[in-house]
Every structure is written in structure tokens, then in C-alpha cells.
Write a protein that binds this DNA or RNA. Sequence first.
DNA 1: AGAAACCTTACAACAACTGTAAGTATTAAT
DNA 2: ATTAATACTTACAGTTGTTGTAAGGTTTCT
Lengths: 225, 225
Amino acid sequence: MEKIVIVEDDVFLRAEIQSILEKEGYSVECISSFDTALEDIASASPSLIILDLNLPKLSGFDICRALKASGLGPILVLTSRNKLHDELHAFDLGADDYLTKPFHPKRLIARIQKLIHLYANMRVLLDAGDFQLDQNANVLYIGKDSISLSENEGIIMKALLKASPLVVKKEELFSLLWGSCDYVDENILQVNMTRLRKTLDEVGMSNRIKTVRGIGYQLIGGDCE
Amino acid sequence: MEKIVIVEDDVFLRAEIQSILEKEGYSVECISSFDTALEDIASASPSLIILDLNLPKLSGFDICRALKASGLGPILVLTSRNKLHDELHAFDLGADDYLTKPFHPKRLIARIQKLIHLYANMRVLLDAGDFQLDQNANVLYIGKDSISLSENEGIIMKALLKASPLVVKKEELFSLLWGSCDYVDENILQVNMTRLRKTLDEVGMSNRIKTVRGIGYQLIGGDCE
DNA sequence: AGAAACCTTACAACAACTGTAAGTATTAAT
DNA sequence: ATTAATACTTACAGTTGTTGTAAGGTTTCT
């Protein structure tokens, strides 16, 4: 069953939405504490998030931005703010749809279904600005080109991307790659870094992995977010 | 540059939309002949399709359905019909967004950007009802599970899926797999079919490929569309 | 029964990936 | 400048997965 999280501060409206969704067969979870909203949503890992913009502490915009940064689900903004610039701003921050109150239940359901369906067919992409990594398929997309990475290359690339622009410690990589092994040669990480760098070279992405002596490695250049 | 196709019969409105889009940097193509609309759109292979519902011959709904059946781009319905049931119907047939006239240019642009971005990150999935094939990554999705196919297995599966529920001729498969080779053993296709069948067995999909004696092979069961 | 079409299994060649080893280059500190 | 630590590169071999060939078995139809 698909799970939907509601981030809404108005009790009445929340209950109304919840009722509509549950009648439709969705499992619903409401966020009450807005301090821990992000963690709660992340741990619920819902198929969709319904977000109000008028919230007590945090602004709905901030939550929207934060959710998107964590790569979290489709966001449907449901609000009484019917100003165009609010809608544009929401889209800008990564909202996937924008519905204003009052709304018709069926319209809400239709748009929810559409968004969930769209996201179900999305690639899980890690974005680095000028290229993307499909974590599942271990495929790197550079514009129209794409290149398939080996298992090890994928693990390293993923770690570098997730940490970017921070440094990934050597021990971190060792544990990701050979965490279950009793012992591996110290050199092996360097060998694998060389191989990844060579692979990146072949698609015109040279000098993108910087060595931080004594600490680890770091993805550089082409920054975007 | 992203290309957008406009399917709109009102000349003034068409010009207005085109102007808005071109100012935004999109390449625009208008469909004038509604007889060959589908072929024209397919050959343009746009990043997005703007569709009006009130068209002379064909109904916008029919076009919508047909476009989706061909797996074509995101569809944004832009219409003067502001009845809820029209919107629901459009969503039902596969429309990805629904905007009513009059509309603000910026709202249109925002939603276009969102849709294009969403679709850019979509997996190209061939749907067989109870399982899907990611053509790019050669990965088969069965519910929550996924299995990686070899190159040959992927080619065969793709051909079977595209033809389904029709039969794929042996010669067709030979040409797809070894079209460039001077000669290959007649037996090799059978061997590869056995291997694909065994792979499918491992994910609980037995007896899904039927042999049509003297002709070729055919995907069966689990039909949906 | 017998022939044609199809299936299965085993084998070997080949390519991709990975870890080890050995040697080279770079960096930082004295 | 010398030296030691750190990092890089290259070559080699074991392993695995993919593919084509060959040989023999099974099914289907007349």
C-alpha cells in the first residue's frame, strides 16, 4: 500500500485530507512535530508528501528545499496561498505540483496518482551538476552520453557524489568496498581510484577526483548545488 | 535545445503560446494537419507536447490516449474546458498536467520545466503488465525485485515485449542479434532462448515464452494492455 | 516409423573485473 | 637536498560472466 505523509498544521484540514486519502486506500502519516519533520519524513519514506506552506516554525519553502536536497519523494504543495509568485517559488524549490484551497477531492486524488506513478518510474539519480549517476544500474550520464561503471567504480562514485563537496575518508571507502573482508592490501584502494579516474577520462571528465593527502578523496569541479 | 510540439487549432492562441515558448528558448513545432498528427509528433520526438482538447476532427482525448500508447513524451493539456470531469478524464488517459485558459505565461513555463525535468529522469520502461524492462540498463523489474539481463537476453526480451502479444519471427531475432555476422550456427538462437528462459525461471516467471513452431517466439501471460 | 523442428547440456574461447605485487612518482619535513 | 611517507601506475593472474559451437536428446507432425 502506498504511504502518504501530510505536513499540515491546520487540524481540521489535516483530518479532511487524511479521510479523503484513506478512503482511496492510501496509508497516511501526519507530521505533528515540525522540529523533527525532516527526519520523520525521511524515516517514513513515503510515496508522496503533501505539504502546506503556512506552518508554525519552519517555512514550507524551507522544508520543500530540504526534502528535495535529501532526494525525497514527490512533493504536492497544498495551500491557501493562491499568489502566482508563491507557486513559482514552490516549483523553483522542487515542488512537483501545486494545488490551492479550496480543492476538489477527486482533483487531489488524480494528481496524487499521477505523481506517484511518475516517480515510480524515475531513475534514482545522484546529481553532480554536469553529470548524474543511476545508483541502481551503475550508469553514469553525461549529457546525452552514458557509460556503464563496474561494481567498485559505482560504489566509489556514489560515495564521492553523496559526500560532495566534502572529502570522503579512505577508511570510509575501505569499509564500503571491503568492509566484510578480513584483510585487503592497502594499495587496492589506490588501484581502484586509478581505474575510476581512467574511466572518467574516457568520457572527457578528467581531474574530477582530487586526492586529499592522508585523508581521502574528493569530487571537484562542475558544481551546481 | 528542448523541442516542444503544440497541438492547437486556434491560430491566435497557437501563436501566443509559440511566442511565449520561443522567448524562453524552446524550439517550437506546431501540428497543423490533424490527420497525420500522431506520425508528425512521433517523428518530431519532442521533449513535451502541449495539447488542446477542442480540435476539429480527432478529439484531444483520443490523441492523448494514442500518444501515451506510443510511449510519447509528457503531455500538458492546455484547454478552455474547466470542468472537473474533463480534467479527470485527461489524467485518466495519461495527461501529465492540466492547465485551463486563461493562464499566466510564467505558470505555463514553470509547469513545462517541471514536466521536462521529470521525464528526463524517467527510465525508459517497456511494460508487460506484471514486469518491466529498462531498455537502457537491460534490467528487468518484477515488482520489487530486479534482475540484470545479459546483452543477448536484453535484445530478445525487448523484441518479444515490443511485439507482444504477436509472434516475433526467427529471422527477425537472427537479424537483431547477428545481423552483421556472415554466418552463425542455426542452433544458436535456440541456445539463447533456453538461456533467457532459464533466467526468467529464476525470478519466478516460467513458461512465459511460447515457441511457435516454424515461425518464431511469443511472449504470453500476464497481459495487461 | 521417420524426418523436421526444437531443446538441452557441456565445452572452450573470450572479455570484463578484481586483487596482488612490484616499481615509480610525488609530497612534506628535516 | 635528502629522506621517508604517501600516493600512483603498470603488469600479471585468478575469477566470473557471456557467448558460440558441437553433440545428442526430445517433441511434433505426417
